[in-house]
Simulated scan of single mutants.
Amino acid sequence: MKKNTTPVYYGDYLHLDKILSAQELQSEKYATAAHEETLFIIVHQVYELWFKQMLHELNTVLDVFTQEAVEDHQLSTVVHRLNRVIKIQKLLNDQISVMETMTPQEFLSFRDYLVPASGFQSIQFKMLEIKLGLKTQYRIDFDKQSFYQRLEPKDREFLQNMETKNSLFEMVNDWLERLPLLDFEDFKFWHLYEKATQEMLQSDREIIQQNETLTDEEKHKELTELGKTEASFNAIFDEAGYHTLLQEGHFRLSQKALMSALFIHQYCEEPVFNLPFQFLTCLTEIDENLTLWRYRHAMMVQRMLGTKIGTGGSSGHDYLKKTTESNRIFKDFFNMSTFLLPKEVLPALPVNVKKNLGFSLSSV
């Protein structure tokens, strides 16, 4: 049954008069209207609408993690909404193929009328990056210098103020640190995990040394690589060593947060860890989709402009290509597989630990 007292008309509800009249062609102001400029405008307007929805979802996730405790039902909602963000990201990535129906010459028919406007001036996209955790200090040097320079003062001040607030990355780091997973009564996961890794790596060493099919040179090469793997494992057990790697930018998560995330990944099949695992997986997918979007955007710019500079004055494709791999947020979750052990060598969770953990991972 209807609940409204005033009839609603489709076009009025969606404000289609405003939306469908919001495509003003720059080319038409100076010469004959460029046919493809309408496509260019609509694609970018759709981007901004979806950015608005992504921010709408992300803000509710941030609200959950500002609380002292994150309950299971809240984490379920968080996973649901982040999955929606992921679906939107896939739409945005696919949308690039629509833009690529425009040829380079068709783009050039109106491109020079857009100077100095640039996608770098998308405030909503910068909001998404900052809220997720890509603040200025985590960008590569040339991006740090140019991140705010193309913005109007009011937009620059707004975003710089946003950078002073905790991002989702920072909140997740704190949440992982608070989870009661690593030290429970007589169960010391940290020590058991270290023992299991040492046994696994020693077994690998013996396999290499006893492999008669390998030459001395091949054995030396494989043992050298094994040594690098051992060094990676040793780093996460050594507080001082880990801190050094943290300062050098090899990790962003704190040591305790990384170990909690590792614990969740190792025992993801346990019901109590399923939702946290889904949540961390969502963050990984969001970062992956952002990287794919940057990559596809860089390829499209190279296809359209070659080595020409961007309308905003950047080096165009070269700039975008460099940010593709460097401007990552949840890279530690991608590298988690480095430290995963085979199921058969994992320390078994004691019955009392399973029982006492129950089905809640509230931060207490």
Rank of each mutant, 00 (worst) to 15 (best):
E129C: 06
R178T: 09
N83A: 05
H220Y: 15
P342V: 11
R303Y: 10
F142T: 09
S109R: 08
M162F: 06
F263I: 07
H220W: 14
N83W: 03
K52N: 09
T38H: 14
E170R: 03
L16W: 07
S315T: 14
H297E: 00
A235L: 11
Q95H: 05
W293L: 15
P350C: 03
F142Y: 01
L320H: 02
E248Q: 14
P347S: 09
M299C: 13
A31N: 03
L39S: 10
Q210F: 04
P347N: 06
L320K: 02
E36W: 12
S326P: 00
Y47S: 04
T213Y: 13
F187M: 08
V43F: 09
L14A: 06
K331E: 14
L168C: 08
W190H: 12
D318Y: 07
G133M: 10
T103H: 12
F339P: 06
A257F: 11
L181I: 12
G249K: 10
T60H: 09
G310W: 06
L349T: 03
N161K: 15
D155L: 05
K188R: 14
M54T: 11
T101I: 12
A240R: 12
I208Y: 13
N166Y: 08
M304C: 05
S146P: 01
V85L: 12
K18E: 11
T103Y: 15
V85D: 07
W175Y: 14
A34Q: 02
V115N: 00
F233A: 06
A22H: 05
E288P: 00
T323H: 13
L245G: 09
L349C: 05
P347C: 04
Y10C: 05
Q95E: 11
I309L: 07
A231T: 13
E212T: 11
M304H: 04
A33I: 11
E212G: 00
H44C: 10
L114S: 00
P350K: 00
H250I: 08
S232C: 06
V172K: 03
Y138K: 09
L92A: 05
R150T: 15
N173D: 15
F142N: 02
D287A: 05
Y148A: 02
N166R: 05
L91Q: 07
Y13C: 03
H243G: 00
M162R: 08
A69F: 12
L49S: 01
L214R: 01
D216H: 11
T224A: 08
G358S: 06
S337E: 07
K322G: 01
I19Y: 01
T311L: 03
H250R: 15
R139C: 15
S97Q: 11
F125L: 14
E71Y: 15
E217D: 13
Q53W: 02
F339K: 02
Y47D: 00
L49R: 02
E100H: 09
L201Q: 07
L292F: 08
V272C: 10
D332R: 11
R139N: 11
